[in-house]
């Protein structure tokens, strides 16, 4: 494990990505304490104050400090995306592994159904679910998790099938090992790696999806400093103060880039043969 982290940090993508994620983690944990100003403090004299010493990333339509809102908003954005991905991955991994394990007609039926569900675009599925469950961050997390689960199930199943055909698994079957040993000790450790890579990259999409739901008014609700919501609120003042819009936009993109980089780095670190 430490070996893996070392190899990850030696890849350029991994090093940059990990640094960015570390900064995000600091913002998520300590955001309210390290924020230079109160993110909710309204200052009518400072409306649309440009970037400068007073407000590092400028001030918004209510004179609130954009930088402080970004720092505090990290915890309304990133942990939600992580939670959604984790939930979707666990559900997907269980379904995928079970399907691969069952095999035969059942496997085919499950996979056909999953393919069919995947014909509904992820965002649409999330929209329908949030529309049903009601607006809010928690429901958005559930919606994204449900939207991700079929894809993760497919990935897990294909990896599990590949691993099941490895000769060490056949050796275990021929030896008469129990089902639990074969699944948990022979297969799972080898299935984990590709699934973790896929999940890491999906966190990037979860960040984007969650921000999109908030942008559309279905995720986090005002006055939360959630980044997607910040973009939505800033749109009507874009003439006066473009920085209010640009700052959270870049925060979202940077977060997505960070997780993409780490996923890519993990792929290289776990698969040294794939050098290009």
């Amino acid at each position: 494990m430490t070996d893996l982290v070392g190899r990850l940090l030696r890849t350029p993508q991994g090093a940059i990505g990990c640094t960015l994620i570390l900064l995000l983690a600091v913002a998520c944990v300590a955001g309210p304490w390290i924020a230079p100003k109160d993110p909710e403090a309204i200052d009518f004299l400072g409306r649309f104050r440009p970037i400068g010493a007073e407000n590092w990333l400028g001030a918004d339509q209510l004179g609130r400090d954009v930088f402080s809102r970004l720092l505090v908003g990290a915890r309304s954005t990133v942990p939600m995306a992580l939670a959604a991905t984790l939930l979707g991955t666990v559900v997907g991994a269980v379904v995928g592994t079970t399907s691969a394990h069952l095999g035969g007609r059942l496997d085919e039926a499950i996979m056909r159904t999953i393919d069919a569900v995947m014909a509904v675009p992820g965002l649409l599925l999330a929209l329908l679910l949030v529309g049903t469950l009601g607006n809010g961050s928690g429901n958005a997390v559930i919606a994204i998790a449900v939207a991700f689960a079929p894809g993760m199930a497919r990935v897990t199943r294909s990896v599990a099938l590949a691993v099941r055909n490895q000769e060490y698994v056949k050796a275990a079957v021929a030896r008469g090992e129990g089902g639990a040993w074969i699944v948990f000790r022979e297969m799972l450790p080898n299935v984990m790696a590709p699934v973790v890579i896929e999940a890491t990259i999906r966190v990037a999409f979860a960040v984007m999806l969650f921000a999109t739901l908030s942008f559309l008014g279905l995720g986090a609700q005002p006055p939360s400093p959630e980044w997607g919501l910040m973009v939505a609120e800033a749109r009507q003042y874009v003439h006066q103060a473009p920085w209010v819009l640009i700052a959270p936009s870049l925060a979202i993109a940077l977060t997505a880039i960070a997780f993409n980089l780490v996923g890519d780095g993990l792929r290289d670190a776990l698969n040294p043969r794939h050098e290009r």
């Binding site: 999806l209 997607g228 993109a253």
Partner: peptide
Amino acid sequence: SFVGIAFPEFVTATLLALVFAD
């Protein structure tokens, strides 16, 4: 392409509108 893949549509749309329309 790494950067491009990280921009959700609503961000791209808003930024493009800011530059080319506004």
